[in-house]
Write a protein that binds this DNA or RNA. Structure first.
Lengths: 216, 216
DNA sequence: TAGATTGTTAATCGATTAACAATC
DNA sequence: TAGATTGTTAATCGATTAACAATC
């Protein structure tokens, strides 16, 4: 049985992983929860609590073995295994993600790009050629792709998601600004840049207002 | 005095805003918390609790006035006011964000791009020419820019953030995979795509493991 | 007035933090 | 052994959910 850990904890694990790997590469053998917490920006207790969910343990009086824990987290997060992904929506954002080399470090490889727009279909993006969305089914089924990335406008996203799921995709990274309705067992991660921008915008707004207040 | 609302609530406001604006444009005059909640994927009680933080009220028995509430949220989130931004790190992701038209709808305009790499400096990205990072100070100061976007590698991010803050930037959208150390009053929003990908990766991993288990 | 739906107070839930015994 | 640091139990905090009186 695989124990579920709380979502907030799960979100912090990649941060711990990154610092542990870095420390390991720099020749640091052990890191205390205090030190790791400093680097990630999380209290030491939180670090210990989070890591106590895992099978790999720390050593009292010494700390966590950087290499061992990094390796463990790598496996736990599945970063060591290759994961194919397809991307639908080859606009600016889609093309950028397809070209982003950083994802390779996390075991993800974008193997196909799709779009609806005839002007975009057939164009080259890095090593890939944008294909027609109508070909999605065939490609995904025979390539055994677990991940779908959606970078279409909001109107198209639901339809695309359903098509992806029909082809066996089980995890969706949704960059389009809308809620996807999916059945249980399908994992959706929303990456709503406009919503994030709104939060940023609110803070700028708030600062402006308080400046106005102070200058009165 | 400007009342602070809880962070989770603040993050949901842009979602409400989007649906309210859409409904307003479609000619729907009122939306109940039930209906709005459905569209955003949040329980009706949560919607009411969230919106009760705002000055704009709903009408018992009727619901929320879509146009009025959308307008209110637009002002509250500062989406109606133009916000200039500079972007440092004109790699694939940086160029994509610079070209992304969607941000305009949220009042953000990227007014300058900077990079360290001489091969990139001077190249054209949309209407803008990538400038040398050494020019950051002059440009930002005379343009009154409140927002900085960081799309550099992790090693450079802290230095870039400090330079931004010295020039008067007060809100940073950090796409680089690292923690930024900044003084109080500077708002930082991390958009760590690799960390998000790790969460996605974990779920794929988990599904694989449970499939293995079932097939035993 | 009856029905619908809000805003708010109180109850629940879950995550973070504090305290501390266990262990290297 | 003394000092450092873990893992865990209990206390706190804050957000979500439930219940319901107020109001259109």
């Amino acid at each position: 049985m695989i124990k579920d850990i709380p979502a907030p904890t799960l979100q912090r694990l990649p941060l711990y992983y990154r610092e542990l790997r870095l420390a390991s590469q720099n020749g640091t053998e052990f890191l205390s929860s205090q030190e790791l917490g400093n680097r990630v920006g999380v209290p030491a207790v939180q670090v210990r609590k989070d890591l106590s969910n895992l099978a790999e343990q720390g050593r009292p009086g010494v700390g966590y073995h950087t290499t061992r824990l990094a390796d463990y987290l790598e496996r736990y997060l599945g970063l060591n295994r290759d994961k194919r992904a397809v991307l639908v929506g080859a606009g600016n954002l889609g093309r950028a993600l397809a070209l982003f080399p950083g994802f390779g470090n996390y075991g993800m490889q974008i193997v196909a790009l799709f779009d609806k727009n005839p002007d975009v279909i057939g164009t080259q993006v890095g090593d890939l050629v944008v294909r027609s969305i109508t070909e999605l089914g065939n490609s995904v089924k025979c390539l055994n792709v677990p991940i779908g990335i959606i970078t279409t406008p909001a109107e198209a996203a639901q339809t695309v998601a359903e098509a992806m799921i029909r082809c066996g995709i089980r995890a969706i990274w949704n960059f389009s600004p809308c809620k996807l309705e999916v059945e249980d067992g399908i994992f959706v991660r929303n990456e709503d840049l406009a919503a994030q921008l709104s939060v940023l915008s609110h803070h700028v707004q708030k600062m402006r207002l308080s400046e106005d207040e102070n200058s009165r």
